[in-house]
Simulated assay, not measured.
Amino acid sequence: MTKLVKWLYGLNVLGALAYIAVCLPKLLMGQPIYPGQAGLLGQVTAGIVLALLPPVLERLFHFQFPPILKLIFELFILGSVLLGTGMQFYNIPYWDKFLHLFSAAMLAGLGMAIFCALTPQERLKTTSPLLIALFAFTFGATIGVFWEFYEFTFDGLLGLNMQRYMAHGVLLAGRAALMDTMGDLFADVFGSLALSVFAYFQVKKDVKWLAAFQFRR
């Protein structure tokens, strides 16, 4: 697991640097490879920072994230930043919805990790698996809602189209304008629910399974 996470760190960072090395000269020569290339370069550069965030936080605060969460996080950064944004994979149908499912499951797992960190170990052994699963589900789905708040806010402030309320520069109306946002929320709920249901049965069978989602000093 640790070797795979390190490999993903390298893939995200080196892949982003290779992207910048190829796309930046083209942009400076006036021959951008992708539309909106300057903005894409900025986001890919930010992706390097995000990819390195877990090990930096671990060194600063002297703890370790659960390896499974680091693995999912690095996969998410790869799919959303380098591939999704930088290489325009978001144009692939349902790529965005797949990432919402994936990230919601990751956030539900983070919710479990936080629950475990806030609960004394002796009490954790007798805690209802249903309570743990409900906390994980609620945490994952709620962060998904806050993300839609973020998209709505910056679409209005910066004239962006993250919520896909425009198509080819034309404002959508009625149900069509809601399809992207509601699809994202459905994906957030289903992703959180899937991880939470799986966690419920695993914890019910053996509470030691939670060790995979616990922070370590």
Rank of each mutant, 00 (worst) to 15 (best):
V44Y: 06
L40G: 13
H62I: 09
G36I: 00
L50T: 13
G47D: 08
R59C: 01
V56I: 14
L53W: 12
H62M: 06
L57T: 12
H62W: 08
P55L: 04
I48Q: 05
Q37K: 09
G39F: 06
A46E: 10
F61R: 05
L50F: 15
T45D: 04
G42Q: 06
L41F: 08
P55M: 09
P55A: 07
Q37R: 13
T45S: 11
A46V: 03
G42T: 10
F61E: 01
A38Y: 08
T45R: 00
E58Y: 08
I48P: 02
G36R: 02
A38S: 11
V56C: 11
V44P: 00
Q43F: 04
L60V: 09
L60H: 05
G36E: 08
L41I: 09
A46C: 08
P66G: 05
T45F: 09
R59G: 04
V56A: 13
V49M: 15
A38R: 15
P66F: 04
P54R: 04
P66R: 01
F65S: 00
L50N: 10
I48T: 02
A46Y: 13
A51D: 14
L52V: 11
R59W: 03
G36K: 01
E58N: 09
F65L: 01
T45C: 03
L52Y: 12
L40Y: 05
L52S: 08
V44Q: 01
A46T: 02
P54E: 01
P55K: 00
E58D: 10
L52C: 13
P66V: 02
G47K: 01
V44E: 14
A51Q: 13
L41M: 14
V49R: 15
G39M: 06
G47W: 02
Q37Y: 03
L53I: 07
H62K: 15
F61T: 00
A51Y: 09
Q64A: 11
A38Q: 12
Q43C: 08
F65H: 02
A51W: 12
V56D: 05
Q64E: 14
I48H: 00
E58G: 06
I48M: 09
A51N: 14
Q64D: 13
P54N: 01
Q64P: 03
P55S: 02
F61S: 03
F65A: 00
Q43N: 09
H62L: 11
A38I: 10
V49Q: 12
F65W: 03
L57W: 13
G39T: 02
G42C: 11
G47C: 00
G42E: 01
G42I: 08
G47R: 02
L53M: 15
L50Y: 15
F63I: 03
P66L: 02
G42L: 06
P54A: 00
H62A: 15
R59M: 03
A51F: 12
R59D: 03
H62D: 14
V49G: 13
G36P: 04
F65E: 01
T45Y: 05
F61Y: 04
Q43T: 11
